[in-house]
Nucleic acid binder design. Structure first.
Length: 407
DNA sequence: TCTGGGGTCCTAGGACCC
DNA sequence: TCTGGGGTCCTAGGACCC
């Protein structure tokens, strides 16, 4: 017996997104190795990946590996358009869509079988629609949890579909190397290897307390759970971003103070422009630095008021840059970045229609359940604190007074 | 692996409060 | 001047992801 809820979370991911858009728009590129981004590879088509080219690689290295590849300069407006079209179809497929980036999202399709069919049918239709209406290849993973769905779509690539029924979860997951787990990178993999843990199966046999000794409590809890196929995180449709940032890298030749200030002004302008068009404002300004030896540092200041204004963000960023001048002169600078975090308007909510014949209490209980379901068991406590205290920073508007520290 | 640009989440220490 | 137990907020760094 196969119940749809058993593999009702889809992870949909457009393959080699930027490169696929380029191949779609220029027929000459189809079937040929295509690399987006001179300088650094931002995307490589699967034809180019066959030669060992991958994202993040320097352009000259990619050229050496695959000399006959076509190099294309990125066209971000085209990618933004394609992303919109993609998400339009995602949202028509399920009311619960959580975007992870321009080209990938989780879709909760549980409970849709009477309307749309079983997860596999939904996934097949989704892939067809994206191919026909957007012209892009889409890989889809379907499983009971987010992690499994994400890893299934990765295994399905390129242009594939993989559904993992609950009975097959262990066979799929346990033999995999730990580094293939979503969230395990180089550092964590090395730590696990040092403790004799190489496969997910070996990880699943260790206790959380043991892992916590060398991974820290949060990573231990997370990895312990997902190795045992526990992942209760719901698909969250209305997540809002937590920061706006912009950075630019430049060569290691000496930079004058005036050069740096000009760059700073441009960065702040970009960031605050984007904030204003998104209708967001924040309180913490972070200056990001990278030195000649590629070491990084950040300097940040939290303002008493949220702001989206070029002037106030620039003033804070300038003060941080001035304070950092001795370090910059000593070590040399190769990257400057500005970010605004601590954004207002990060709350939790659920709206329900309230039929006139329903008692308010029942509807309220239902709304509370819905919030708990969407945002986690902790959300009510956090949300209640916000609701009781209108002065808390997340709901401040630009210019409103923020609470003093300690309140 | 000689390194772009945009993000998320977690950890740890310290100042400060009752 | 030795010091309990429970908190909040800010800063800086780091791992990880696309």
């Amino acid at each position: 017996v196969f119940v749809s809820g058993d593999a009702g979370i889809l992870h949909a991911d457009a393959d080699a997104f930027y490169a696929s858009v380029e191949q779609r728009d220029d027929p000459r590129l189809r079937g040929r190795p295509t690399i987006v981004g001179p300088g650094v590879v931002t995307a490589a088509s699967y034809e180019a990946r066959a030669y060992g080219v991958h994202g993040g690689m320097s352009g000259w290295r990619a050229r050496r590996l695959c000399p006959h590849a076509t190099f294309v300069t990125p066209r971000f407006t085209a990618y933004t358009e394609a992303s919109k079209a993609l998400f339009e179809i995602f949202k028509q497929t399920s009311p619960r869509v959580e975007g992870l980036s321009m080209e990938e999202a989780f879709l909760d399709v549980r409970g849709l079988e009477r309307i749309s069919g079983a997860p596999r049918e939904i996934a097949v239709r989704l892939r067809n629609r994206v191919r026909e209406e957007v012209g892009l290849p889409l890989s889809v993973g379907a499983a009971r949890t987010k992690v499994l769905a994400k890893m299934a779509s990765r295994a399905a690539k390129p242009d594939g579909l993989l559904l993992i029924p609950p009975a097959k979860e262990e066979a799929f997951l346990l033999p995999l190397p730990v580094e293939s787990l979503w969230g395990v990178g180089r550092v964590t993999a090395e730590k696990l290897h040092a403790h004799g843990i190489h496969t997910v199966g070996q990880l699943a046999r260790r206790s959380e307390a043991e892992l916590a000794w060398f991974l820290g409590p949060a990573a231990a809890r997370h990895l312990h759970a997902i190795a045992r196929r526990h992942d209760p995180r719901p698909v969250r449709p209305d997540r809002r971003r937590g920061s706006f940032g912009s950075q630019s890298a430049f060569g290691s030749s000496p930079k004058s103070g005036a050069d740096l200030d000009a760059r700073l002004v441009a960065l702040v302008d970009r960031v605050t422009r984007r904030m204003r068009s998104a209708g967001r404002a924040g309180r913490t300004v972070t200056l990001r630095l990278r030195f000649d030896d590629f070491a990084r540092a950040t300097r940040s200041r939290t303002l008493p008021h949220v702001t989206d204004g070029t002037g106030s963000v620039l003033a804070a960023a300038r003060a941080l840059l001035t304070a950092a001048t001795p370090v910059i002169e000593r070590r040399g600078i190769t990257l400057l970045g500005v970010a605004v975090t601590n954004l207002a308007g990060r709350g939790f909510g659920a709206q329900l229609e309230l039929p006139l014949d329903r008692p308010l209490d029942a509807a309220l209980d239902e709304a509370i359940d819905e919030v708990r379901d969407r945002y986690g068991p902790d959300a009510i406590r956090r949300g209640a604190a916000l609701a009781r205290n209108p002065d808390l920073s997340p709901w401040l508007r630009p210019g409103e007074e923020a609470p003093r520290p300690g309140s």
